[in-house]
Deep mutational scan, measured.
Amino acid sequence: LDITFHVDGKNIHVHGASEEVVRIIEELIKNNARAEEIKETLERLLR
């Protein structure tokens, strides 16, 4: 699975993920999660 995301100002662009995963990533970023935390969360979800 190949998910890429980047933050452009306040806009979060996520590619290669389901809508549910996109929402989770957006929440994590809004809550100022570190990249490592986001990665760990995604790995748990995608197991």
Rank of each mutant, 00 (worst) to 15 (best):
L1R: 12
L1E: 08
L1Q: 11
L1P: 06
L1K: 12
D2A: 09
D2I: 11
D2L: 11
D2E: 10
D2C: 13
D2F: 12
I3F: 15
I3T: 04
I3Y: 15
I3Q: 03
I3G: 01
T4V: 11
T4Y: 12
T4A: 06
F5K: 03
F5R: 03
F5T: 03
F5P: 02
F5Q: 03
F5H: 03
F5M: 05
H6L: 13
H6M: 12
H6Q: 11
H6W: 15
H6D: 11
H6T: 13
H6A: 07
V7D: 03
V7F: 08
V7M: 04
V7E: 03
V7A: 03
D8N: 08
D8F: 06
D8I: 01
D8Y: 07
D8T: 02
D8C: 08
D8H: 07
D8P: 01
D8S: 05
G9S: 02
G9H: 03
G9R: 01
G9N: 04
G9T: 01
K10E: 15
K10N: 11
K10S: 11
K10M: 15
K10H: 10
K10Y: 14
K10F: 15
K10Q: 15
K10T: 14
K10C: 07
K10D: 11
N11I: 13
N11Q: 14
N11R: 09
N11M: 14
I12H: 02
I12R: 00
I12C: 05
I12D: 00
I12V: 07
I12Q: 01
I12G: 01
H13L: 06
H13R: 07
H13S: 07
H13I: 10
H13E: 06
H13T: 11
H13A: 05
H13P: 03
V14Q: 01
V14G: 02
V14R: 00
V14P: 00
V14H: 01
H15Q: 09
H15V: 09
H15D: 03
H15S: 09
H15W: 15
G16E: 04
G16T: 04
G16S: 08
G16Q: 07
G16R: 06
G16V: 04
G16H: 07
A17F: 03
A17W: 03
A17I: 13
A17G: 03
S18R: 05
S18M: 03
S18L: 04
S18C: 02
S18K: 05
S18E: 03
S18Q: 05
E19Q: 11
E19H: 11
E19Y: 15
E19V: 12
E19D: 11
E19A: 13
E20K: 08
E20H: 09
E20T: 07
E20F: 12
V21E: 03
V21Q: 05
V21I: 13
V21C: 03
V21H: 06
V21D: 05
V21R: 00
V21T: 10
V22C: 02
V22H: 04
V22S: 03
V22Y: 09
V22L: 08
V22N: 02
V22Q: 05
V22F: 09
V22R: 07
R23T: 06
R23I: 07
R23Q: 09
R23F: 12
R23D: 04
R23K: 10
I24R: 08
I24A: 09
I24V: 10
I24H: 08
I24G: 02
I24S: 04
I24E: 06
I25Q: 00
I25W: 02
I25V: 09
I25R: 00
E26D: 09
E26G: 10
E26L: 15
E26C: 08
E26Q: 13
E26M: 15
E26S: 13
E27K: 10
E27W: 15
E27L: 13
E27M: 14
E27D: 13
L28A: 05
L28R: 03
L28M: 13
L28N: 01
L28C: 02
L28F: 05
L28H: 04
I29F: 05
I29H: 01
I29R: 02
I29L: 09
I29A: 02
I29N: 01
I29P: 00
I29K: 02
I29V: 06
K30W: 13
K30Y: 14
K30P: 00
N31T: 09
N31R: 12
N31S: 11
N31D: 06
N31P: 01
N31W: 08
N31A: 10
N31M: 14
N32P: 03
N32D: 10
N32W: 12
N32G: 13
A33G: 06
A33K: 08
A33N: 04
R34M: 07
R34E: 07
R34F: 06
R34S: 13
R34V: 07
R34L: 06
R34W: 05
A35F: 15
A35Y: 15
A35D: 04
A35M: 14
A35L: 14
A35T: 05
A35I: 14
A35N: 05
E36P: 07
E36K: 08
E36W: 14
E36R: 08
E36N: 08
E36Q: 11
E36D: 13
E37H: 11
E37F: 13
E37L: 13
E37N: 07
E37K: 10
I38F: 05
I38M: 03
I38A: 02
I38V: 12
I38P: 00
I38G: 00
I38E: 01
K39L: 15
K39A: 11
E40Q: 13
E40K: 12
E40G: 11
E40Y: 15
E40M: 14
E40W: 14
E40V: 12
T41Q: 09
T41V: 12
T41Y: 10
T41K: 08
T41C: 06
T41W: 12
L42T: 01
L42M: 07
L42S: 00
L42Q: 00
L42D: 00
E43C: 13
E43A: 15
E43W: 15
E43V: 14
E43G: 13
E43M: 15
E43S: 15
E43Q: 15
E43T: 15
E43Y: 15
E43P: 01
R44M: 10
R44P: 01
R44F: 14
R44T: 08
R44V: 08
R44S: 07
R44I: 07
R44H: 07
L45Y: 07
L45F: 07
L45E: 02
L45M: 07
L45W: 09
L45G: 00
L45K: 01
L45A: 03
L45V: 06
L45P: 00
L45R: 01
L46D: 02
L46G: 03
L46K: 04
L46E: 02
L46N: 03
L46I: 07
R47H: 13
R47S: 13
R47A: 15
R47W: 12
R47M: 15
R47C: 05
R47I: 13
